[in-house]
Nucleic acid binder design. Structure first.
Lengths: 108, 108
DNA sequence: CCGTATCCATTTGGATACTG
DNA sequence: CAGTATCCAAATGGATACGG
């Protein structure tokens, strides 16, 4: 949901583009939850505090579109869907971890 | 100032709190613009692409409240206001720089 | 289980005119 | 120059209903 209409405002600076990809209110928390490995939809719903179904779906789709996560569907009954980070998404680990540390020192 | 009262939403995870401080749509761009040193209000308005007055004021206030920036007013005519990063804000430099690099490699 | 869809309230963001 | 004030659009959240 980032690069929809850009004709108007010419160009966004790099940080703005990045935030369009991982700056969503829940993106980093979802990525953080995926660091240990693949997670099912319902697991993510549990792991990301206070998120609701609609927002989780929305952010996951956005992240899938932007190549941060991969969605894998298994034709089981009941259905199973697993989300994993792409290498591109995994490269965010040190950055988000540092941000997390910064927060522990200064925010919490 | 954390473990006081949070009955309603029980607890936000740390990342959510951090994003409340620097996750605003414009915060990182403003911080980035302030890395080289103090800037006046109008300079920031120029340096942060596409931001508008209201949002710049709002984000700066939020960041001042959260100890990221310092606002210094000079009683000149016309008025002069300078914004600088606090040490806490300066510690974000490596993190935002890494994020920027990540974006250059994967987004731009 | 994994979503989609809908209604509605609240929050946040944007454009721009105006002021000390 | 450095903001306020105002009005409006878009994003988000919560609850709930429903379907493959």
């Amino acid at each position: 949901m980032s690069n929809k209409k850009m004709e108007k405002s010419e160009e966004k600076c790099a940080l703005q583009e990045i935030l369009g990809v991982i700056g969503g209110k829940w993106s980093m928390s979802i990525i953080y939850a995926l660091f240990p490995g693949k997670k099912r939809f319902s697991e993510l719903e549990r792991l990301v505090p206070n998120i609701n179904t609609r927002m989780l779906v929305k952010e996951l789709k956005n992240m899938e579109t932007n190549g941060i996560v991969v969605r894998k569907v298994y034709a089981t009954v009941p259905p199973t869907v697993e989300y994993t980070l792409t290498p591109k998404g995994q490269k965010l680990e040190p950055i988000i971890s540092e941000l997390y540390k910064w927060g522990l020192e200064y925010v919490g």
